[in-house]
Design a protein around this nucleic acid. Structure first.
Lengths: 189, 189
DNA sequence: ACGCTAACGGACGCCCCCGTCCGGTTGGCT
DNA sequence: AGCCAACCGGACGGGGGCGTCCGTTAGCGT
Protein backbone atom coordinates (compact mmCIF):
# COMPACT_ATOMS: atom_id res chain seq x y z
CA UNK A 1 0.00 0.00 0.00
CA UNK A 2 2.98 2.27 0.15
CA UNK A 3 3.02 2.16 -3.65
CA UNK A 4 0.87 5.12 -4.39
CA UNK A 5 2.39 5.58 -7.86
CA UNK A 6 3.33 2.02 -8.75
CA UNK A 7 4.86 2.54 -12.16
CA UNK A 8 7.17 5.50 -11.98
CA UNK A 9 10.18 4.42 -13.99
CA UNK A 10 13.71 5.02 -12.96
CA UNK A 11 15.22 8.29 -14.18
CA UNK A 12 17.62 6.77 -16.71
CA UNK A 13 14.79 4.68 -18.09
CA UNK A 14 12.67 7.77 -18.58
CA UNK A 15 15.54 9.56 -20.26
CA UNK A 16 16.11 6.69 -22.64
CA UNK A 17 12.45 6.47 -23.41
CA UNK A 18 12.37 10.14 -24.31
CA UNK A 19 15.49 9.88 -26.43
CA UNK A 20 14.02 6.91 -28.28
CA UNK A 21 10.82 8.77 -29.04
CA UNK A 22 12.75 11.78 -30.25
CA UNK A 23 14.92 9.60 -32.48
CA UNK A 24 11.88 7.76 -33.81
CA UNK A 25 10.19 11.03 -34.71
CA UNK A 26 13.28 12.22 -36.58
CA UNK A 27 13.93 8.99 -38.44
CA UNK A 28 10.29 8.27 -39.26
CA UNK A 29 9.80 11.81 -40.52
CA UNK A 30 12.86 11.63 -42.74
CA UNK A 31 12.62 8.10 -44.12
CA UNK A 32 9.14 6.77 -43.42
CA UNK A 33 8.03 3.83 -41.34
CA UNK A 34 9.98 1.17 -43.20
CA UNK A 35 13.22 1.79 -41.32
CA UNK A 36 14.92 -0.93 -39.25
CA UNK A 37 14.20 -0.64 -35.54
CA UNK A 38 17.93 -0.81 -34.89
CA UNK A 39 18.52 2.39 -36.77
CA UNK A 40 16.26 4.21 -34.39
CA UNK A 41 18.07 2.59 -31.47
CA UNK A 42 21.45 3.64 -32.83
CA UNK A 43 20.20 7.15 -33.50
CA UNK A 44 19.02 7.31 -29.90
CA UNK A 45 22.33 5.99 -28.56
CA UNK A 46 20.65 2.96 -27.08
CA UNK A 47 20.93 -0.81 -27.43
CA UNK A 48 18.32 -2.77 -29.35
CA UNK A 49 17.11 -4.53 -26.22
CA UNK A 50 16.31 -1.21 -24.56
CA UNK A 51 14.29 -0.12 -27.54
CA UNK A 52 12.30 -3.36 -27.58
CA UNK A 53 11.79 -3.22 -23.82
CA UNK A 54 10.15 0.17 -24.04
CA UNK A 55 8.28 -0.47 -27.28
CA UNK A 56 7.72 -4.14 -28.06
CA UNK A 57 6.49 -3.45 -31.59
CA UNK A 58 6.89 -0.76 -34.21
CA UNK A 59 3.21 0.05 -33.82
CA UNK A 60 3.51 0.97 -30.17
CA UNK A 61 6.53 3.10 -30.93
CA UNK A 62 4.89 4.87 -33.84
CA UNK A 63 1.69 5.44 -31.90
CA UNK A 64 3.52 7.29 -29.16
CA UNK A 65 5.95 9.02 -31.47
CA UNK A 66 3.13 10.46 -33.54
CA UNK A 67 0.90 11.41 -30.64
CA UNK A 68 1.94 15.02 -31.10
CA UNK A 69 1.15 15.00 -34.80
CA UNK A 70 -2.16 13.42 -34.02
CA UNK A 71 -2.95 16.21 -31.60
CA UNK A 72 -1.91 18.68 -34.27
CA UNK A 73 -4.42 17.06 -36.61
CA UNK A 74 -7.17 17.49 -34.08
CA UNK A 75 -6.18 21.07 -33.46
CA UNK A 76 -6.32 21.80 -37.19
CA UNK A 77 -9.78 20.37 -37.77
CA UNK A 78 -11.14 21.81 -34.53
CA UNK A 79 -9.81 25.18 -35.50
CA UNK A 80 -11.45 24.79 -38.89
CA UNK A 81 -14.77 23.96 -37.25
CA UNK A 82 -14.40 26.91 -34.89
CA UNK A 83 -14.01 29.31 -37.78
CA UNK A 84 -17.30 31.16 -38.29
CA UNK A 85 -16.67 31.27 -42.05
CA UNK A 86 -17.39 27.73 -43.35
CA UNK A 87 -15.38 28.16 -46.50
CA UNK A 88 -12.32 29.60 -44.83
CA UNK A 89 -12.52 26.90 -42.18
CA UNK A 90 -12.66 24.23 -44.84
CA UNK A 91 -9.86 25.53 -47.02
CA UNK A 92 -7.47 26.30 -44.20
CA UNK A 93 -8.03 22.82 -42.79
CA UNK A 94 -7.21 21.19 -46.11
CA UNK A 95 -4.15 23.36 -46.59
CA UNK A 96 -2.80 22.74 -43.14
CA UNK A 97 -3.46 19.01 -43.18
CA UNK A 98 -1.68 18.72 -46.51
CA UNK A 99 1.29 20.63 -45.22
CA UNK A 100 1.45 18.60 -42.02
CA UNK A 101 1.55 15.39 -44.00
CA UNK A 102 4.15 16.79 -46.38
CA UNK A 103 6.42 17.56 -43.48
CA UNK A 104 6.39 14.06 -42.08
CA UNK A 105 6.68 11.03 -44.29
CA UNK A 106 6.18 8.55 -41.49
CA UNK A 107 3.09 10.19 -40.12
CA UNK A 108 1.51 10.18 -43.53
CA UNK A 109 2.13 6.48 -43.89
CA UNK A 110 0.87 5.77 -40.39
CA UNK A 111 -2.24 7.86 -40.87
CA UNK A 112 -3.33 6.75 -44.30
CA UNK A 113 -2.23 3.14 -44.60
CA UNK A 114 -2.79 2.85 -40.85
CA UNK A 115 -0.52 -0.14 -40.27
CA UNK A 116 -0.11 -3.77 -41.18
CA UNK A 117 -2.92 -4.57 -38.82
CA UNK A 118 -4.78 -1.61 -37.40
CA UNK A 119 -3.07 0.83 -35.14
CA UNK A 120 -4.38 2.46 -32.00
CA UNK A 121 -4.88 5.33 -34.39
CA UNK A 122 -8.02 3.66 -35.69
CA UNK A 123 -10.28 5.29 -33.12
CA UNK A 124 -8.50 8.63 -33.25
CA UNK A 125 -8.58 8.59 -36.99
CA UNK A 126 -12.29 7.95 -36.90
CA UNK A 127 -12.83 10.97 -34.71
CA UNK A 128 -10.80 13.19 -37.03
CA UNK A 129 -12.66 11.86 -40.04
CA UNK A 130 -15.98 12.67 -38.39
CA UNK A 131 -14.89 16.24 -37.86
CA UNK A 132 -13.73 16.54 -41.46
CA UNK A 133 -17.11 15.22 -42.56
CA UNK A 134 -18.81 17.90 -40.51
CA UNK A 135 -16.52 20.54 -41.98
CA UNK A 136 -17.28 19.33 -45.48
CA UNK A 137 -21.02 19.25 -44.96
CA UNK A 138 -21.00 22.75 -43.55
CA UNK A 139 -19.02 24.16 -46.46
CA UNK A 140 -21.24 22.40 -48.97
CA UNK A 141 -24.44 23.58 -47.37
CA UNK A 142 -23.10 27.12 -47.40
CA UNK A 143 -22.89 26.73 -51.16
CA UNK A 144 -19.12 26.90 -51.49
CA UNK A 145 -18.56 23.32 -52.56
CA UNK A 146 -20.03 21.61 -55.55
CA UNK A 147 -23.22 19.87 -54.43
CA UNK A 148 -21.92 16.39 -55.18
CA UNK A 149 -18.80 16.69 -53.04
CA UNK A 150 -18.71 14.05 -50.33
CA UNK A 151 -16.43 13.28 -47.43
CA UNK A 152 -14.81 10.65 -49.62
CA UNK A 153 -13.64 13.32 -52.04
CA UNK A 154 -11.82 15.11 -49.27
CA UNK A 155 -10.23 11.88 -48.08
CA UNK A 156 -9.24 11.27 -51.68
CA UNK A 157 -7.46 14.59 -51.74
CA UNK A 158 -5.59 13.83 -48.54
CA UNK A 159 -4.54 10.42 -49.82
CA UNK A 160 -3.42 11.83 -53.12
CA UNK A 161 -1.42 14.43 -51.25
CA UNK A 162 0.46 11.65 -49.53
CA UNK A 163 1.74 10.52 -52.92
CA UNK A 164 3.82 13.65 -53.28
CA UNK A 165 7.22 12.26 -52.40
CA UNK A 166 9.72 14.85 -53.57
CA UNK A 167 13.31 14.38 -52.56
CA UNK A 168 13.75 17.18 -50.04
CA UNK A 169 11.27 18.11 -47.33
CA UNK A 170 11.19 21.65 -48.70
CA UNK A 171 10.21 20.37 -52.14
CA UNK A 172 7.51 18.21 -50.58
CA UNK A 173 6.01 21.13 -48.71
CA UNK A 174 6.07 23.33 -51.80
CA UNK A 175 4.45 20.65 -53.92
CA UNK A 176 1.89 20.02 -51.22
CA UNK A 177 0.94 23.67 -51.08
CA UNK A 178 0.37 23.88 -54.80
CA UNK A 179 -1.55 20.67 -54.72
CA UNK A 180 -3.83 21.81 -51.92
CA UNK A 181 -4.69 24.95 -53.88
CA UNK A 182 -5.40 22.91 -56.97
CA UNK A 183 -7.55 20.41 -55.12
CA UNK A 184 -9.55 23.12 -53.39
CA UNK A 185 -10.30 24.70 -56.74
CA UNK A 186 -11.40 21.29 -57.94
CA UNK A 187 -13.88 20.95 -55.10
CA UNK A 188 -15.18 24.50 -55.19
CA UNK A 189 -18.65 25.29 -56.57
CA UNK B 1 29.47 -16.32 -91.80
CA UNK B 2 26.79 -18.95 -91.57
CA UNK B 3 25.51 -17.10 -88.52
CA UNK B 4 23.05 -14.80 -90.14
CA UNK B 5 21.05 -14.35 -86.96
CA UNK B 6 23.71 -14.75 -84.30
CA UNK B 7 21.65 -14.39 -81.17
CA UNK B 8 18.54 -16.46 -81.58
CA UNK B 9 18.13 -18.17 -78.26
CA UNK B 10 17.22 -21.78 -77.88
CA UNK B 11 13.49 -22.46 -77.71
CA UNK B 12 13.37 -23.41 -74.03
CA UNK B 13 15.33 -20.30 -73.19
CA UNK B 14 12.88 -18.13 -75.08
CA UNK B 15 9.95 -19.82 -73.37
CA UNK B 16 11.45 -19.25 -69.96
CA UNK B 17 12.21 -15.66 -70.77
CA UNK B 18 8.61 -15.07 -71.77
CA UNK B 19 7.27 -16.80 -68.70
CA UNK B 20 9.54 -14.70 -66.50
CA UNK B 21 8.35 -11.48 -68.08
CA UNK B 22 4.74 -12.52 -67.71
CA UNK B 23 5.28 -13.42 -64.06
CA UNK B 24 7.11 -10.15 -63.44
CA UNK B 25 4.27 -8.15 -64.92
CA UNK B 26 1.74 -9.93 -62.73
CA UNK B 27 3.71 -9.70 -59.51
CA UNK B 28 4.90 -6.13 -60.03
CA UNK B 29 1.39 -5.00 -60.88
CA UNK B 30 -0.07 -6.64 -57.79
CA UNK B 31 2.57 -5.85 -55.18
CA UNK B 32 4.86 -3.17 -56.56
CA UNK B 33 8.56 -3.26 -57.28
CA UNK B 34 9.70 -4.15 -53.79
CA UNK B 35 9.14 -7.87 -54.23
CA UNK B 36 11.96 -10.44 -53.94
CA UNK B 37 13.34 -11.57 -57.28
CA UNK B 38 12.87 -15.15 -56.17
CA UNK B 39 9.15 -14.71 -55.88
CA UNK B 40 9.00 -13.81 -59.54
CA UNK B 41 11.16 -16.83 -60.35
CA UNK B 42 8.89 -19.14 -58.36
CA UNK B 43 5.80 -17.62 -59.95
CA UNK B 44 7.36 -18.32 -63.36
CA UNK B 45 8.26 -21.89 -62.41
CA UNK B 46 11.95 -21.21 -62.89
CA UNK B 47 15.09 -21.37 -60.76
CA UNK B 48 16.71 -18.19 -59.46
CA UNK B 49 19.77 -18.68 -61.65
CA UNK B 50 17.65 -18.69 -64.77
CA UNK B 51 16.00 -15.47 -63.77
CA UNK B 52 19.33 -13.78 -63.11
CA UNK B 53 20.81 -15.11 -66.33
CA UNK B 54 18.09 -13.48 -68.38
CA UNK B 55 17.84 -10.33 -66.31
CA UNK B 56 20.94 -9.54 -64.24
CA UNK B 57 19.22 -6.78 -62.28
CA UNK B 58 15.71 -5.82 -61.28
CA UNK B 59 16.04 -2.73 -63.46
CA UNK B 60 16.59 -4.71 -66.64
CA UNK B 61 13.66 -6.95 -65.78
CA UNK B 62 11.35 -4.06 -64.97
CA UNK B 63 12.39 -2.16 -68.07
CA UNK B 64 11.38 -5.03 -70.32
CA UNK B 65 8.35 -6.01 -68.29
CA UNK B 66 6.97 -2.50 -68.50
CA UNK B 67 7.82 -1.91 -72.13
CA UNK B 68 4.17 -2.48 -73.01
CA UNK B 69 2.94 -0.02 -70.43
CA UNK B 70 5.48 2.47 -71.66
CA UNK B 71 4.17 2.09 -75.18
CA UNK B 72 0.67 2.54 -73.82
CA UNK B 73 1.81 5.80 -72.27
CA UNK B 74 3.14 7.03 -75.56
CA UNK B 75 -0.01 5.96 -77.33
CA UNK B 76 -2.12 7.89 -74.83
CA UNK B 77 -0.23 11.16 -75.11
CA UNK B 78 0.15 10.84 -78.88
CA UNK B 79 -3.55 10.24 -79.19
CA UNK B 80 -4.15 13.29 -77.02
CA UNK B 81 -1.94 15.39 -79.27
CA UNK B 82 -3.65 14.01 -82.35
CA UNK B 83 -7.03 15.13 -81.08
CA UNK B 84 -8.03 18.31 -82.92
CA UNK B 85 -9.81 19.57 -79.80
CA UNK B 86 -7.04 20.73 -77.39
CA UNK B 87 -9.23 20.47 -74.32
CA UNK B 88 -10.57 17.03 -75.05
CA UNK B 89 -7.07 15.86 -75.92
CA UNK B 90 -5.78 17.19 -72.63
CA UNK B 91 -8.50 15.80 -70.41
CA UNK B 92 -8.62 12.38 -71.99
CA UNK B 93 -4.85 12.10 -71.65
CA UNK B 94 -4.96 12.92 -67.95
CA UNK B 95 -7.83 10.53 -67.37
CA UNK B 96 -6.22 7.66 -69.20
CA UNK B 97 -2.80 8.15 -67.66
CA UNK B 98 -4.33 8.20 -64.19
CA UNK B 99 -6.22 5.01 -64.90
CA UNK B 100 -3.18 3.29 -66.35
CA UNK B 101 -1.18 4.06 -63.26
CA UNK B 102 -4.01 2.96 -61.01
CA UNK B 103 -4.08 -0.41 -62.70
CA UNK B 104 -0.42 -1.16 -62.15
CA UNK B 105 1.30 -0.45 -58.89
CA UNK B 106 4.73 -1.42 -60.12
CA UNK B 107 4.60 0.68 -63.22
CA UNK B 108 3.62 3.69 -61.19
CA UNK B 109 6.59 3.21 -58.92
CA UNK B 110 8.93 2.64 -61.85
CA UNK B 111 7.63 5.66 -63.71
CA UNK B 112 7.52 8.22 -60.94
CA UNK B 113 10.31 7.31 -58.55
CA UNK B 114 12.22 6.03 -61.57
CA UNK B 115 14.52 3.64 -59.72
CA UNK B 116 17.24 3.60 -57.12
CA UNK B 117 19.56 5.03 -59.71
CA UNK B 118 18.00 6.02 -63.00
CA UNK B 119 16.40 3.48 -65.22
CA UNK B 120 16.50 3.17 -68.97
CA UNK B 121 13.13 4.81 -68.62
CA UNK B 122 14.85 8.13 -68.09
CA UNK B 123 15.03 8.95 -71.81
CA UNK B 124 11.59 7.54 -72.55
CA UNK B 125 10.14 9.40 -69.65
CA UNK B 126 11.67 12.60 -70.91
CA UNK B 127 10.03 12.11 -74.29
CA UNK B 128 6.64 11.51 -72.70
CA UNK B 129 7.07 14.55 -70.48
CA UNK B 130 7.85 16.69 -73.50
CA UNK B 131 4.64 15.58 -75.15
CA UNK B 132 2.66 16.29 -72.03
CA UNK B 133 4.20 19.75 -71.93
CA UNK B 134 3.09 20.33 -75.49
CA UNK B 135 -0.39 19.09 -74.68
CA UNK B 136 -0.56 21.41 -71.69
CA UNK B 137 0.65 24.44 -73.59
CA UNK B 138 -1.84 23.83 -76.33
CA UNK B 139 -4.77 23.53 -73.94
CA UNK B 140 -3.68 26.65 -72.06
CA UNK B 141 -3.27 28.71 -75.18
CA UNK B 142 -6.71 27.64 -76.30
CA UNK B 143 -7.95 29.25 -73.09
CA UNK B 144 -9.19 26.11 -71.40
CA UNK B 145 -6.63 26.02 -68.62
CA UNK B 146 -5.97 28.71 -66.07
CA UNK B 147 -3.19 30.92 -67.43
CA UNK B 148 -0.75 30.04 -64.64
CA UNK B 149 -0.93 26.29 -65.17
CA UNK B 150 2.48 24.85 -65.97
CA UNK B 151 3.75 21.44 -66.94
CA UNK B 152 4.76 21.00 -63.31
CA UNK B 153 1.15 21.20 -62.22
CA UNK B 154 0.24 18.32 -64.48
CA UNK B 155 3.18 16.28 -63.21
CA UNK B 156 1.99 17.12 -59.72
CA UNK B 157 -1.41 15.67 -60.54
CA UNK B 158 0.10 12.48 -61.90
CA UNK B 159 2.32 12.07 -58.86
CA UNK B 160 -0.56 12.71 -56.51
CA UNK B 161 -2.56 10.11 -58.38
CA UNK B 162 0.11 7.57 -57.61
CA UNK B 163 -0.60 8.05 -53.91
CA UNK B 164 -4.03 6.48 -54.28
CA UNK B 165 -3.27 3.05 -52.92
CA UNK B 166 -6.63 1.48 -52.19
CA UNK B 167 -6.70 -2.18 -51.27
CA UNK B 168 -8.22 -3.69 -54.39
CA UNK B 169 -7.33 -2.80 -57.97
CA UNK B 170 -10.98 -1.98 -58.63
CA UNK B 171 -11.01 0.51 -55.75
CA UNK B 172 -7.80 2.07 -57.03
CA UNK B 173 -9.24 2.57 -60.50
CA UNK B 174 -12.44 4.04 -59.12
CA UNK B 175 -10.56 6.42 -56.86
CA UNK B 176 -8.28 7.35 -59.71
CA UNK B 177 -11.20 8.21 -61.95
CA UNK B 178 -12.75 10.50 -59.40
CA UNK B 179 -9.42 12.06 -58.71
CA UNK B 180 -8.72 12.76 -62.37
CA UNK B 181 -12.06 14.54 -62.69
CA UNK B 182 -11.36 16.60 -59.60
CA UNK B 183 -7.87 17.53 -60.73
CA UNK B 184 -9.04 18.51 -64.18
CA UNK B 185 -11.60 20.85 -62.65
CA UNK B 186 -8.83 22.29 -60.52
CA UNK B 187 -6.75 23.09 -63.58
CA UNK B 188 -9.59 24.37 -65.73
CA UNK B 189 -9.96 28.08 -66.46
C1' DA C 1 28.10 4.11 2.32
C1' DC C 2 25.84 0.13 0.82
C1' DG C 3 22.98 -3.21 -1.12
C1' DC C 4 19.16 -4.38 -4.02
C1' DT C 5 17.07 -4.50 -8.08
C1' DA C 6 15.51 -2.05 -12.24
C1' DA C 7 17.55 -1.17 -16.36
C1' DC C 8 21.18 -1.50 -19.82
C1' DG C 9 23.34 -3.26 -24.16
C1' DG C 10 26.48 -6.58 -26.44
C1' DA C 11 25.97 -10.93 -28.36
C1' DC C 12 23.34 -14.84 -30.08
C1' DG C 13 20.49 -17.69 -33.22
C1' DC C 14 16.99 -17.34 -36.54
C1' DC C 15 15.20 -16.38 -41.03
C1' DC C 16 14.94 -14.28 -45.54
C1' DC C 17 17.01 -12.35 -49.50
C1' DC C 18 20.83 -11.83 -52.45
C1' DG C 19 23.90 -13.25 -56.48
C1' DT C 20 26.78 -17.15 -58.15
C1' DC C 21 28.76 -21.77 -59.03
C1' DC C 22 28.53 -26.25 -61.01
C1' DG C 23 26.88 -30.91 -62.16
C1' DG C 24 23.06 -32.52 -64.77
C1' DT C 25 19.70 -31.98 -68.70
C1' DT C 26 17.95 -31.09 -73.25
C1' DG C 27 17.28 -28.72 -77.60
C1' DG C 28 19.08 -28.52 -82.28
C1' DC C 29 22.01 -29.83 -85.92
C1' DT C 30 24.29 -33.35 -88.73
C1' DA D 1 20.90 -41.63 -83.60
C1' DG D 2 24.32 -39.14 -81.42
C1' DC D 3 27.05 -35.25 -80.13
C1' DC D 4 27.84 -30.79 -78.14
C1' DA D 5 26.97 -26.67 -76.42
C1' DA D 6 23.40 -23.89 -74.57
C1' DC D 7 20.64 -23.97 -70.81
C1' DC D 8 18.68 -25.32 -66.41
C1' DG D 9 18.04 -25.11 -61.26
C1' DG D 10 19.42 -26.85 -56.65
C1' DA D 11 22.71 -25.56 -53.44
C1' DC D 12 26.00 -22.47 -51.26
C1' DG D 13 28.13 -18.52 -48.68
C1' DG D 14 27.38 -13.79 -47.43
C1' DG D 15 24.85 -10.08 -45.41
C1' DG D 16 21.27 -7.81 -42.74
C1' DG D 17 17.21 -7.37 -39.87
C1' DC D 18 14.69 -9.55 -36.34
C1' DG D 19 13.55 -10.46 -31.28
C1' DT D 20 15.71 -12.34 -26.97
C1' DC D 21 18.99 -13.79 -23.33
C1' DC D 22 22.06 -12.76 -19.72
C1' DG D 23 26.13 -10.78 -17.42
C1' DT D 24 27.05 -6.04 -16.04
C1' DT D 25 26.02 -1.26 -14.61
C1' DA D 26 24.04 2.26 -12.01
C1' DG D 27 19.79 4.58 -9.88
C1' DC D 28 17.55 4.92 -5.53
C1' DG D 29 16.13 3.98 -0.92
C1' DT D 30 17.94 3.24 3.67
Amino acid sequence: MTEVLPHLRRSDARDNRDRILEAARAVFAADGLAVPMRRIARHAGVGPATLYRHFPTKETLATEAFAGQMRACYAIVDEGLADPDPWRGFTSTIEQLCELHARDRGFTAAFTAEFPHALDFAADRERAVQSIAKLTRRAREAGHLRPDVELDDVILVLMANSGLQGTSPAARVAASRRFAALAIRGLQA
